[in-house]
Simulated assay, not measured.
Amino acid sequence: MATKFQLQPKPTFKADVTIPRAGDDDGVLTFTFKHHPLKQLSEIESIKDTTAADFVMQIAEGWALSDDFTHENVVILLENYPQAGTAIVKKYYEEMVGNREKN
């Protein structure tokens, strides 16, 4: 059954991010993302000297790990899994623009 459409989206949404892992199968980590209107997202994107971890902290508010969702832990994730940042941001934009992959 289709969900009733609303003019104002939910403030957060969950999405599974597939993160490549060297020598192992890709891992899947569920993120709780923040829904930002396009104008606000554009402002976030234009912040100078922002790091990948800073950007992830702006677009997400949590993850399905036992480790706390903190800036320090996001940095650890991005350092240990070099493609994680790209995978997280790509999934966020796919969800935001409705460009999801179909099975």
Rank of each mutant, 00 (worst) to 15 (best):
3 T>L: 14
4 K>C: 09
6 Q>L: 12
7 L>W: 08
7 L>V: 12
9 P>F: 01
11 P>Q: 11
13 F>S: 02
16 D>L: 09
17 V>I: 02
20 P>R: 00
21 R>P: 08
25 D>F: 11
28 V>P: 09
28 V>D: 06
31 F>D: 03
36 H>N: 07
39 K>L: 13
39 K>P: 06
41 L>I: 03
44 I>E: 07
48 K>L: 11
49 D>P: 10
50 T>P: 10
51 T>I: 09
52 A>T: 15
52 A>P: 15
56 V>P: 03
56 V>Y: 06
56 V>G: 01
57 M>E: 04
58 Q>S: 14
59 I>A: 06
60 A>W: 00
60 A>V: 06
61 E>Y: 02
62 G>Q: 09
64 A>H: 08
64 A>S: 01
65 L>A: 09
65 L>H: 05
69 F>H: 03
71 H>L: 11
71 H>W: 10
72 E>N: 11
72 E>D: 13
73 N>M: 07
75 V>L: 00
75 V>T: 03
75 V>F: 01
80 N>F: 03
82 P>T: 05
84 A>N: 00
85 G>D: 08
88 I>H: 03
91 K>I: 04
92 Y>E: 01
93 Y>I: 11
95 E>R: 07
96 M>N: 05
98 G>M: 04
98 G>A: 01
102 K>G: 14
102 K>A: 14
102 K>M: 15
